[in-house]
């Protein structure tokens, strides 16, 4: 086995152990409620502008790009439904998760990595404070719960972006547009897409924390941890998405 392959397997093993520890520590008191709320604010609220802009552009661009093809078939009236379905089932969850992987996972990895390098994590440990519980559990839980909310928000803004896109070339009232969107949506479009966003959130927090906690000594490793967190989280998001689509296909 080459050293690179060995590293991949040992990394996979270590990250699994790291994830298992999350579930063990999650239910053990004391609960770091204050820090969890602070992390929800940081990961959720502070990502809103970024997600809003991305969501709006996604909806607008998707509408403008799809319009000529549908117009060729005389099926322009399907545009709101098609845009909403594409956004809610696939584009908004994946793009939002990727944006958050770039923004949140790298931020967590850099923050925890620099705490590791400057011995702040060790300082917590010698003060008999569990750094995993205080730093990792709160962040992973916050991303797991905030990413679905951000995706929901991106869905709404994206659908609105679609409305703006529609009105560039035609004139449709907002109520009529919303009506058409809801007409084409079903419960099965929303449920699997929502469930997978929890997994996206979980891996964003998990990989960010893991890379930060395992950063080597030296300031260079902080940059490496942040970079590696973005790459690993983005790749994992695509893999989860592929699995989620396959599973959804089987059941619905």
């Amino acid at each position: 086995m080459t050293p690179d392959t060995k590293n991949i397997f040992s990394d996979a093993g270590n990250i699994t152990k790291f994830a298992l520890r999350f579930f063990i520590e999650l239910f053990k008191p004391p609960y770091e409620i204050k820090e969890f709320i602070r992390q929800c604010f940081r990961t959720g609220y502070k990502s809103l502008p970024l997600v809003a802009i991305t969501g709006f552009i996604m909806g607008l661009v998707l509408t403008l790009q799809s319009r000529p093809t549908l117009a060729g078939f005389g099926a322009e009236s399907w545009l709101p439904g098609m845009v909403a379905l594409s956004l809610i089932r696939e584009i908004a969850p994946v793009i939002t998760a990727l944006i958050c992987a770039g923004n949140i996972a790298s931020g967590i990895a850099a923050e925890l990595g620099s705490m590791k390098v400057t011995e702040q994590i060790d300082a917590m440990e010698v003060s008999a404070i569990n750094p995993y519980k205080y730093l990792a559990v709160t962040r992973i839980l916050a991303t797991t719960l905030m990413i679905p909310i951000l995706v929901f928000f991106a869905d709404l803004v994206g659908v609105f972006g679609g409305y703006v896109g529609m009105n560039i070339h035609s004139d449709i009232s907002f109520m009529r547009y919303v009506d058409k969107v809801f007409e084409s949506l079903d419960f099965v479009d929303i449920l699997p897409a929502t469930i997978k966003t929890f997994f996206f959130g979980f891996v964003i927090g998990l990989i960010g924390c893991y890379k930060g906690f395992t950063a080597a000594n030296g300031t260079e490793s902080v940059g490496k941890a942040a970079n590696s967190a973005v790459v690993s989280a983005s790749l994992t998001i695509f893999i989860i998405d592929m699995l989620a689509v396959q599973i959804t296909d089987l059941f619905f």
Binding site: M115, T118, E119, Q120, A123, E125, V126, S127, A128, I129
Partner: peptide
Amino acid sequence: RLRIGFLFQSSALYDSMSVRENLAFPLARH
């Protein structure tokens, strides 16, 4: 560990917290 104090070479102050919060952090917990 609660009976042992450790002064790190880099001081290891929590960068995201003020001096007051740095001191309150272990005290409030224990």
